[in-house]
């Protein structure tokens, strides 16, 4: 087993809430928004593995996920919830990361089946990613090989409860600890790995900057000058992939 630094829990951080968060009006709006978010999840399926087959019964007349406001969406821009339905190869993980970064927060990731938890039956494969949460913040795992629709729905309901109570904030960790995640990604894909999405710029723009947003790994991005759109960005993307 390679010696990856394994990420366990986000460190507790004391953040001073800004004025808008403290105001009653702001808190009320945010509370309503959380409720709406929980009840209106737009789902993006990343159907790489066998887990996808469990989704049609969940969506269609047998269980009907639209009852709880879930709808399938086709592009990451529109979606709130990314479903990773089964094993990830190294090649597909790149696309998952790009897709995840193109989703707009609050966004949630759900790993389907044991493959996303520990590689599952592909544990011995050289090309399969073992742990999804090394590379992306995951909100919910569903164990099983494969999980039945009942289990999937159980997970959805738990996720909705988590969102409704305002505890599903993992997506912010990706911005706060971007250096950590990028490091993991670079360890797997090589040092030249980067996506066209300007995560650091977004973190700065939305005040989601954390102590680990920048670090030794993000320093390697400097040579691509990705974060000054219009100047070096296009050149940077000319790197062959």
């Amino acid at each position: 087993m390679p010696d990856y630094p394994i990420y366990r829990d986000p460190p507790e951080q004391c953040r001073t809430p800004d004025a808008e968060e403290r105001s009653l009006w702001g808190r009320t709006l945010e509370r309503i928004a959380d409720h709406c978010r929980a009840r209106s999840l737009f789902v993006l399926h990343y159907c790489t593995g066998c887990g996808a087959i469990e989704l049609p019964p969940s969506m269609t007349s047998r269980f009907d996920l639209e009852r709880v406001g879930m709808q399938p969406m086709v592009t990451p821009r529109q979606a709130d919830l990314l479903l990773i339905t089964g094993y990830l190869s190294v090649k597909t993980l790149k696309r998952v990361i790009l897709t995840y970064e193109q989703m707009q927060g609050p966004k949630y990731v759900m790993g389907f089946g044991s493959c996303t938890i520990n590689g599952g039956m592909y544990w011995n494969s050289y090309a399969t990613v073992k742990r999804l949460d090394q590379y992306l913040p995951v909100d919910m795992y569903i164990a099983g090989c494969m999980p039945r629709p009942e289990a999937i729905q159980q997970a959805f309901l738990q996720l909705m409860e988590k969102i409704d109570s305002g505890r599903a904030q993992n997506w912010k960790e990706y911005y706060r600890r971007y250096d950590h995640y990028l490091g993991e990604q670079q360890a797997l894909f090589g040092e030249q790995f980067h996506t066209p999405t300007d995560v650091i710029g977004e973190a700065r723009h939305y005040s989601l900057f954390g102590p680990e947003t920048l670090g030794e790994h993000t320093a390697k991005l400097a040579k691509y000058d990705l974060y000054h759109p219009g100047q070096g960005a296009v050149d940077a993307l000319e790197v062959k992939r």
């Binding site: 990451p76 696309r95 066209p196 300007d198 723009h205 939305y206 759109p229 219009g230 993307l237 062959k240």
Partner: peptide
């Protein structure tokens, strides 16, 4: 709510990485 102005190659392409080529 605020939006972030991104560069044109940060674009949905079905998971494909876009380059200037």
């Amino acid at each position: 709510g605020r939006s972030y102005r991104t560069q044109p190659l940060d674009n949905y392409a079905g998971g494909h990485f876009l380059t200037a080529q």
